[in-house]
């Protein structure tokens, strides 16, 4: 029979090492007495967009923060299990956390431009890494801004304050700042919740472009956004992964009743 539509889907329970960007093994996270994540086991596919959805407080932001050890900064945080990126456990005692955060970039809910020029914002990470050669910085800034589709909009005002950009532009610039360090993985924690619908669509389209070069993981409480933007989706509830599969299956025929109830607005 003639196949009319092609949709490549990977089985997230059965990824080869070449297809895997992050392997999460028996991950547990506690904040003091509170158990936030419980026995998380996941294979996150490379060069795809994976969304984490769930109610507020379900642990999705905590999980994404484990992927570049942002939780280390929180008092009373205790992690067990493994998060394997490029063959090594990022929770190994010899892991250099600064290097890790270069490889695994993160963008937050509200655009957080530094009070300096657009150029200085985007080149900030590189300068911290000791890159000061002007030509290298110019190239890196241009490439990162091109990747986020912002170059044409800001190339004539690179030395103006980043605070003069619109909310959507600021968020794209923040993504460019992360991209300037050429991360393998880009984590986005509710990246569009402070933006208007049109700016949101631009960011979503950007993510679709970025996955060609990077693995993208997005946390969102907006199910419609997860459906639009992601190739794979994990539904998290009370610190556990309830269902994790390709987004087509999860949003048309979820296997677990709990997932069905959540995505159809019958939960709680």
């Amino acid at each position: 029979m003639l196949k009319l539509f092609e949709h490549d889907k990977l089985d997230v329970n059965n990824l080869s090492p070449e297809q895997t960007a992050i392997e999460v093994k028996q991950l547990n996270l506690r904040f003091g007495e509170k158990r936030v994540l419980e026995d998380i086991n996941m294979l996150i596919p490379k060069n795809q967009v994976t969304a984490l959805i769930g109610q507020s407080g379900c642990g999705k932001s905590s999980l994404i923060s484990c992927f570049n050890r942002m939780n280390d900064l929180l008092h009373g945080c205790e992690v067990s299990g493994q998060v394997i990126i490029s063959g090594s456990d990022i929770y190994h005692r010899k892991q250099n956390v600064a290097t890790l955060r270069t490889r695994v970039g993160m963008v937050f809910q509200k655009p957080n431009p530094f009070p300096m020029s657009i150029f200085e914002n985007v080149s900030y990470g590189l300068k911290l890494q000791g890159v000061h050669e002007r030509r290298k910085l110019d190239d890196a800034v241009e490439q990162a801004l091109r990747e986020t589709g912002l170059w044409k909009e800001v190339r004539d005002r690179l030395f103006e304050s980043a605070l003069t950009l619109s909310g959507g532009q600021q968020q794209r610039m923040v993504i460019a700042r992360a991209l300037a360090l050429k991360p393998e993985i880009l984590l986005l924690d509710e990246p569009t919740s402070a933006l208007d619908p049109l700016a949101t669509l631009h960011i979503e389209e950007l993510l679709n472009q970025l996955k060609k070069q990077h693995t993208v993981i997005i946390v969102t409480h907006n199910m419609q956004q997860a459906a639009r933007v992601s190739d794979y989706t994990a539904f998290i509830h009370e610190g556990k992964v309830i269902e994790y599969s390709d987004s087509d299956s999860l949003f048309t025929m979820p296997k677990r009743k709990q997932t069905e109830s959540y995505i159809t607005g019958r939960y709680g």
């Binding site: 419609q224 459906a227 639009r228 987004s247 949003f251 048309t252």
Partner: peptide, 8 residues
């Protein structure tokens, strides 16, 4: 069905 579920 897929497009309705994914793209609204």
């Amino acid at each position: 069905m897929r497009i309705i579920a994914r793209r609204h």
